[in-house]
């Protein structure tokens, strides 16, 4: 069975990373920004898994790392959503531009 070449997977993860980066920079909606961060984290996960499988199939560190990242991403999403909800309660908006009281 023909394996998918490593470079293809890296293309996917790189694309995913930059899509996430683009979303993070351009969106003003916090939920969208949070989703973009998730995309970036997942692109990193793909890289870990791919390198583990293709370069060191006898080891498991890459898999463990991606498991850690998934766990941390879940925690991070919980914290971020809590922040967003609080912000919404205060400002009636989840636009980052509106959260400017600490500016200057």
């Amino acid at each position: 069975m023909n394996q998918v070449p490593l470079s293809h997977i890296l293309f996917v993860s790189t694309a995913l990373f930059f899509i996430g980066m683009y979303g993070l920079f351009t969106r003003r909606n916090m939920i969208t920004m949070l989703m973009s961060v998730e995309l970036i984290l997942n692109s990193v996960n793909i890289n870990f898994i791919a390198f583990n499988k293709y370069l060191y199939p006898e080891k498991l560190e890459g898999v463990f790392f991606s498991l850690f990242i998934i766990a941390i991403a879940a925690a991070e999403a919980a914290v971020a959503i809590a922040i967003i909800i609080n912000l919404y309660r205060n400002l009636r908006s989840i636009d980052v531009e509106d959260a400017n009281e600490m500016k200057f």
Partner: peptide
């Protein structure tokens, strides 16, 4: 004062 601009510079 926009976080995203700073993130862009950082990136």
């Amino acid at each position: 004062g926009r976080v995203q601009d700073y993130a862009l510079y950082f990136f």
